[in-house]
Design a binder for these strands. Structure first.
Length: 223
DNA sequence: TGTAAGATCCTA
DNA sequence: AGGATCTTACAT
């Protein structure tokens, strides 16, 4: 199976992310999720992994937050415990996938905006086949290629379920742990930078710098 | 019951 | 810059 990922780490060296680790402010969790892995497991056992390379944070006091006003049928899971999925339909066509974060009663989430897939699932568009590294470059495309829809909202993100998260591999983490002041990459430690900037596509909270991405990744939706 | 807007993406 | 496409939230 052809790999379209920049990393070749095996899955066995990564630990599942548990709800406790996600029970922090979304603006802390969002950059920490860069380099972590989203796992999609289908009913037949087929499993795909994607490195998270772009995230956005949404917080309780954030006017762009779907739960900014009050609980509704759609947003109720955001008010609950961390470690749940929040999936919603956008513009009638796509879906967006979020990880619920922070403490119960503090509606918060991290939107996953782009992944580097370990392999390209069946059923993608011709454009996906032509540029597999772009198949999950954007929150709508990410859900489309991994077949994430509204049936997967309000689900625990835990191994064995359709979706769960895994921590950074030690190999990947090491790339971040270069000595401070080092601006040049090396063969063993390629240059790896995070960029923090404003979020995309909003009409509210447009100036909050709560989008993070891996600068070198070709899967980022917009640099 | 009606309606305006939307955490997108692709094409022109 | 515009259109696809439809659910949600809030107003009436």
């Amino acid at each position: 199976m052809p790999s379209v990922s920049l990393s070749s780490s095996s899955s066995s060296d990564r630990q599942p992310i548990d709800p406790e680790w996600l029970s922090r402010d979304a603006t802390e969790v969002a950059p920490d999720l860069l380099g972590c892995v989203l796992v999609r497991q289908f009913a037949d056992g087929q499993t795909y992994r994607g490195f998270i390379v772009e995230t956005e944070a949404y917080t309780p006091d954030d006017p762009a937050m779907h739960a900014y006003r009050r609980p509704t049928d759609r947003n109720r899971v955001l008010f609950g415990r961390a470690g749940m999925s929040y999936v919603y339909r956008i513009y009638g066509i796509y879906h967006c996938f979020n990880v619920v974060t922070d403490l119960e009663g503090r509606p918060s989430a991290v939107l996953l905006r782009a992944l580097e897939l370990n392999a390209l699932p069946e059923g993608g568009t011709p454009a996906d086949a032509a540029k597999p590294h772009r198949a999950a470059a954007g929150p709508g495309k990410l859900c489309r290629i991994l077949k994430i829809d509204a049936s997967l909202t309000a689900q625990p993100l835990y191994p064995g379920n359709p979706l769960w998260l895994e921590h950074r591999s030690p190999d990947w983490q090491a790339k971040l742990d270069r000595p401070t002041g080092s601006t040049e990459g090396t063969a063993s430690h390629p240059l790896l930078e995070f960029v923090q900037t404003t979020r995309i596509g909003l009409t509210q909270g447009v100036d909050l710098p709560w989008r993070w991405y891996v600068k070198s990744s070709r899967a980022v939706s917009r640099h």
